[in-house]
Design a binder for these strands. Structure first.
Lengths: 178, 178
DNA sequence: CGCGATTTTCTGTTACGACAGAACTATCGG
DNA sequence: CCGATAGTTCTGTCGTAACAGAAAATCGCG
């Protein structure tokens, strides 16, 4: 890791490990971390140099970050090369990530549960227990989806307000206002 | 996969893949799926037989599920062997998972960010940009934690009610009641 | 105590994903 | 068009995590 302050290194390494747990690979997450703290957009070669990974690796990783929608290409005047920058707004960024994960994980699972329940309903009571258990799971996922869609509708600023007002909302609920 | 209806197989396989994305390994998630749809608690050997994985594997996987807190040991009368069952209440189960993931992922990251920001503050304006960017990240994580802790306080039923009342809460917010 | 029965830990193998480097393709400047 | 530069895809290697089977430890009952 060339030309990085100790703090930057610490952050990038930790972010890489964290990315692993979130289903990205380490390099992808590290590149994102680097772009996130970079003052200006970086060319692929700059990333190669700072992180010491292969050019090919950087290419595919950047592609993946673009698929996630949290990194985009920009061009700087007088330079043929692509430059890359991370989303700046942290709240927006996590909304994008949330949306994407829902699409990739929750939605297919919901569909699978619906399929299974439909099939289990057919024959007879052999799958009755399964039918019931998967029904509870499905209910949960559907509620989660509803909450998500609600949050999707509001602008980020409203979501933040709501989050900050959390305890007040809770009190309203207890008072039976809602 | 012996003695499993097609629906059960479908569910277990999908849950296994999904578990992969959530940082478990496939077998761990499959065992959980099996326990979740099983009518009664299962002995390790039963799992070995139905899923066709090695005994040792089942042992360590069960251990991991117990560490997560979503599977526990029960004993059935007249049988020395341990039997295992998954949590039944889906909402509780996901609360447990959420708590655990926060502990393992969010908390360490928050600490790391605090450290980095403290260090970046010290020397001079060299790390000023990093200081700023990481500050935004930290703010986000702290807000998320606050929301989480709020939700942690309420009983599951209240959380469900709140979720179902989602749109009403939103309207209140827009009206400036909160 | 001691002997099955059961579970856990250890060890070597395997499979898969991450990766580097090379080959290839596309793009731009002259 | 041609050559150079940038970017992508392909291919083989390597490292890690999952795994099976064996060995060890633990448990419960006579």
């Amino acid at each position: 890791m060339k030309n990085l302050s100790p703090v930057a290194q610490k952050f990038i390494l930790h972010w890489g490990e964290m990315g692993l747990r979130w289903g990205l690979n380490r390099t992808v997450a590290q590149i994102h971390a680097l772009l996130f703290i970079s003052e200006e957009p970086l060319a692929a070669d700059a990333i190669v140099e700072t992180l010491g990974v292969a050019r090919s690796n950087v290419s595919t990783s950047l592609r993946e970050l673009q698929n996630w929608g949290i990194v985009k290409v920009v061009h700087v005047a007088g330079d043929r090369r692509d430059h890359f920058e991370s989303m700046r707004d942290v709240y927006e960024m996590f909304r994008v990530i949330l949306r994407e994960r829902k699409r990739r994980e929750i939605d297919p699972t919901t569909r699978m549960l619906r399929d299974c329940i439909a099939e289990a309903g057919k024959p007879k009571a052999a799958d009755a227990v399964i039918h019931d258990r998967l029904g509870q799971l499905l209910e949960f996922f559907e509620l989660a989806t509803a909450v998500y869609e609600q949050s999707e509708k509001m602008p980020t600023t409203a979501a933040i307000k709501l989050a900050k007002a959390g305890d007040k909302v809770f009190k309203l609920l207890r008072l039976g206002t809602v």
